[in-house]
Amino acid sequence: MVKSKRDKDVSLTKVKKKTKEGKVQMVAEVRKCVDHYKNLFIFTIANMRSNRFIDVRQKYKETSRFFFGKNNVLAVALGKHKSDEYANDLHRVSSSLKGQCGLMFTNLTKATVLKEVAKASEEDFARVGDTAKETIVLPEGHLEQFSFSMEPQLRKLGMPTKLDKGIVALYQDFEVCKEGEPLTADQAKILKLLDIKMSQFKLIFKGHWESKKGFSELDTTA
């Protein structure tokens, strides 16, 4: 009997060792950043987009270092309690690491971070489950932005379409989405085809720490 190529033995010992080494290295890197950078910020991300976050990291790579995710490892590096914190008041930073969040170590001033980084945002297309920001209703009539070949796809997405002399048309009014309601997969696709963006990528800063003044909570949600 031919042995399946999928039936391969995996050494769990090696996997665990590699994972442990990665955690130890991250702890060391975080502590090095505490010593090197002037300011530390806790942040969350509204409407996470990996490519957008990469752009932010690249933009501030000369002045800052970002860590995102792995809250427990970050908390261990900073210290979970007053008795084991790496520097004064860092246990309060650890206590604030809840949900999807990260750390930004930076030599930028607090004012610069809150004025520039926190205010920088980018519109993007909404995804499945995102909440519709407004009600979108398309009136009966021609949809001249679409080629005739798109008509079957639009109809498949639930739009009441037909071809009228080679032009895609709605034969009745069509509500794409309703404000306040979560978007379905079809609704998200339709909004993208219509080039309507309802999502906004943004860093939201929850707290700030510096060695002399310690930790303080922030509110940059507005």
Score class of each variant (00 low, 15 high):
S94G: 02
I42D: 04
S149V: 09
K213W: 03
F67M: 08
G79Y: 00
K8T: 15
D195K: 15
T221K: 15
K3E: 11
R127G: 07
C177Y: 03
A75Y: 01
E122T: 15
K197Y: 07
E134T: 12
S83D: 15
I167W: 03
E62D: 13
V128R: 08
F148P: 10
Y86V: 05
C101L: 07
V93Q: 06
A87I: 00
F41A: 02
F201D: 09
V34I: 15
I190G: 04
K213Q: 12
V15K: 11
P182Y: 09
V113L: 03
C33M: 10
I196N: 05
T109A: 04
T131R: 10
S83A: 12
W209L: 04
D130M: 11
P152I: 08
A28P: 02
S83C: 04
M159W: 06
S216W: 04
G99E: 06
V73H: 03
Q200L: 13
F41E: 05
P182R: 06
A75Q: 02
K98S: 09
R52W: 15
K119H: 08
K197P: 05
T161W: 06
F105C: 02
G180T: 12
E62I: 02
K14P: 02
E85S: 11
N51A: 14
I196S: 05
P152Q: 07
D219C: 05
T220W: 02
A188T: 09
T106V: 06
Q25W: 04
A120N: 11
D89K: 09
S50C: 04
D219H: 10
E123R: 09
G129S: 08
G102K: 02
T161S: 03
Y171V: 14
V113H: 01
L108E: 14
M26A: 07
A188C: 11
V30H: 00
D89I: 02
K3W: 13
F215C: 11
C101N: 13
E85F: 01
K115I: 00
N47A: 15
G207R: 10
A120C: 08
A75T: 00
T112R: 03
